[in-house]
Nucleic acid binder design. Structure first.
Lengths: 242, 242
DNA sequence: GGGGGACATTCTGTATACATTACCGCCCCT
DNA sequence: AGGGGCGGTAATGTATACAGAATGTCCCCC
């Protein structure tokens, strides 16, 4: 048994199984048994079962009544809904932060992140990797800005739905013609969201955060309609039926 | 091993453990080990562990870094947020149903439920048990009205957060002076929500659904401030610190 | 040739064994 | 007397054994 990490086998099972599903090695709709997966990953059934439970929770697997699982089959509509939901929940986080006042330490950090994002999208010293990292931190901070663990938790959960994550399309975006323009637009929205929260404009903050999530939807639609060849660059898009 | 049910032990562990937490037998903050719970429920660790995983997911338990769990400690603010979230998500379900058109079969059933609810709150033939059952069905139908499995799933998840369920306060409500008036008000809102969905008034439907969840908040605040003695009649209120 | 039923296989759900790790209290040393 | 190390105990993580259920398969009978 591996010495590193307290739940090493479980973690490995979770990560590897998730990869298998997301990159399409396990085709959507395929039946998946504990035993088969355990053998494939060379693990015992115990950690594999836990990992499968977790993946069911994440929505990547569906339980079958009789036992065992099936790889979830997503439609475009499902991904659109997942993105919409993330927008709604981030919007709620933003609105509550505006109404109740933002947690000062998180707001401070957010200002730093926004400044850093400005630098990252500056054409003179464009830094894609920095953008990805900072964008992720922005969304994490936004989830926690209202100081509500319950809200933060659900925002983060919604971000784990397939292709709903704020970072899901950044990979593919590298290959989209004017993606730098798109990142600049996103950063503009980041600023406006924070501004609305700071100025206690709850409705505006909510609406802006929702609209911000629409960027992901636009990217989704672009990839699916204009560049289906990029679909395998975006995590989870292999799951989409048809 | 029990003959009845495919996951009888797991189910028993989940239900009994949840009861122990919700009714306060396991005080908030208390450390809870697999072994201890397994012994207490007279089960092996395997189903107990799965049940604990699930309860962590539901938010009733918190994982401890080192392994093991702690019974979650909720504040009033947490319950308020949980209710707010349910309102936001039901609002989203209602708005999307309005924007995209409601699923006809679900809308049909909803009209029947609304008629039945009218009868249940009619003072002449008031029927509390029927109200509880129909109210639950109304909220279930609302979650699915937009025809989005993703949205329905998250609405239902939010309803499982402690004391956030649409039915959480009905128990205690029996003991509140003019609770019949309150039920009538709730039913009035049910009607208006459905009406807005039917007439494709998305913003109105969303706002009404959010406001409807505020009834739960009002009940929460009433119980906590006016009738703390009722707190143990409402599932989950025993978890609230202070 | 097709359908149905008994059998075999496989899988799940549960219990339990085993090794590793964390926890707790005690004692010793300074 | 207080703090730090040390050992015992208990709990976790993982593997595996076993029984019951589900699935399918193969053969026989029609």
């Amino acid at each position: 048994m591996s010495k590193q990490g307290r739940k090493a086998q479980f973690t490995r099972a979770l990560i590897e199984a998730r990869s298998l599903i997301i990159d399409g090695s396990l085709p959507a709709g395929e039946r998946l048994t504990e035993t088969a997966l355990a053998e494939r990953l060379d693990l015992s059934r115990t950690p594999v079962r836990q990992a499968m439970d977790r993946l069911v929770d994440e929505g990547l697997l569906e339980r079958i009544d009789t036992g065992g699982c099936r790889v979830a089959r997503f439609t475009m509509a499902d991904l659109v809904d997942a993105i919409e939901l993330r927008g709604v929940l981030e919007g709620t986080a933003a609105r509550l932060a505006a109404e109740r006042g933002a947690v000062p330490e998180i707001a401070d950090r957010m200002e730093q992140v926004l400044d850093a994002l400005d630098r990252a999208v500056d054409p003179a010293r464009f830094d894609f990797r920095a953008y990805v990292r900072l964008n992720e931190e922005f969304h994490d901070l936004l989830a926690r800005l209202a100081g509500s663990p319950i809200v933060a938790r659900e925002v983060e959960r919604a971000s784990r739905l397939p292709a709903a994550s704020p970072v899901a399309f950044l990979q593919g975006q590298e290959l989209i013609p004017d993606f730098r323009v798109s990142l600049g637009r996103a950063q503009h929205q980041h600023r406006r969201i924070y501004e609305a929260v700071r100025d206690r404009e709850g409705a505006r903050a909510e609406a802006l955060a929702r609209e911000h999530a629409r960027l992901a939807r636009a990217n989704l639609e672009y990839v699916m309609h204009e560049q289906p060849s990029l679909a395998d660059r975006v995590p989870g898009l292999a799951l989409v039926a048809g």
